[in-house]
């Protein structure tokens, strides 16, 4: 069975949006590699666009210690990734939504409410309470102020000078739909194997708010993630402190298989090399465009 892979593209300037089935991302698993693949698609077609994406991984919300998401920004030929926790990565994954892409700029400051496949653009100048958006018990929010912050707690880091000024102030997201698990017994067994590896985590149990699906409650959950993590954990997109667990190709293979992903060992072993190629390709595209462009017209 081929897993559903979908992305949501939102044009902030026109308020048009499209849900697209996007099986091409299967060969990049998820997380950072998928976000880079989508960015390369953008640069090859609209190298002057303002762009932000939020991307999740295939195990988010379903297996423990894989509850992060990656936010990728692109502006004036510069791109940067921000990784953090909370609920949004898990909620997106449970709705088969791999990535949300924001293009261009809104003419006025705006918040977006996304409930399943229903989108509402809310003028930030109007009086409203952001915490009233979304569905009770299934609500998560990301706010893009100087710091990118989810649920007023989980940080993705400070925006840098090349983060696009696109007037998107925040997103409130509520998932809808069913996440199908083909073999519950196998899933429970693999999940138990992951939980049994708790001693390999680089954090200890605590009482702090936890990322969704993570039983640890560690004191570091609120911090932005270290970007210097191996490719496989970063494609899942696991917690950096679970890197020793999700570097285990056999375990990752079992996790993916239990959810119906048809990756094989050979693919997973060769996979890290693809990411280096993606980064190289993006940098070459940017360099080529800006080298031959006399004036860059940023939208």
């Amino acid at each position: 069975m081929e897993k559903k892979r979908n992305i949501l593209q939102i044009d902030l300037s026109t308020k048009d949006y499209f849900f697209k089935s996007f099986p091409e991302i299967n060969k990049y698993i998820g997380g950072e590699p998928v976000s880079l693949f989508l960015l390369r698609e953008l640069i090859n077609t609209e190298p002057t666009s303002n762009y932000v994406s939020i991307t999740t991984g295939p195990l988010c919300g379903v297996f423990p210690y894989t509850s992060k998401s990656v936010i990728t920004s692109y502006f004036k030929g510069h791109y940067k990734e921000y990784v953090g926790g909370g609920k949004i990565g898990s909620f997106m994954s449970l709705s088969y939504l791999d990535s949300i892409e924001f293009y261009n700029s809104s003419p006025t400051p705006v918040y977006i409410e996304l409930v399943g496949k229903d989108i509402r653009f809310i003028n930030a100048e109007e009086s409203f309470n952001i915490d009233s958006l979304g569905l009770s018990g299934r609500r998560t929010k990301i706010q893009f102020s100087n710091e990118i912050l989810s649920d007023d707690y989980f940080s993705y880091g400070e925006k840098n000078e090349f983060f696009p000024q696109n007037n998107l102030l925040g997103l409130v997201y509520s998932p809808q739909g069913e996440f199908y698990i083909p073999d519950i017994d196998n899933y429970n067994e693999v999940r138990r194997k992951v939980l049994d590896k708790e001693s390999e985590l680089l954090v200890v149990k605590g009482t702090s708010p936890s990322c969704y699906g993570c039983p640890m409650g560690c004191a570091l959950s609120k911090n932005m993630e270290n970007l210097n993590v191996s490719v496989l954990p970063r494609s899942l997109i696991s917690c950096a402190y679970a890197e020793p667990i999700y570097n285990d190709i056999n375990l990752v293979f079992s996790c993916l298989q239990s959810l119906g992903f048809d990756y094989d060992h050979e693919f997973l072993e060769k996979f890290p090399g693809k990411i280096g190629d993606l980064n190289k390709s993006i940098k070459e595209s940017i360099e080529n465009y800006f080298k031959f462009s006399d004036s860059v017209n940023i939208k």
Partner: peptide, 9 residues
């Protein structure tokens, strides 16, 4: 059931 559907939790 065999699905994760938070609306049914």
């Amino acid at each position: 059931g065999k699905t994760i559907d938070l609306s049914k939790s």
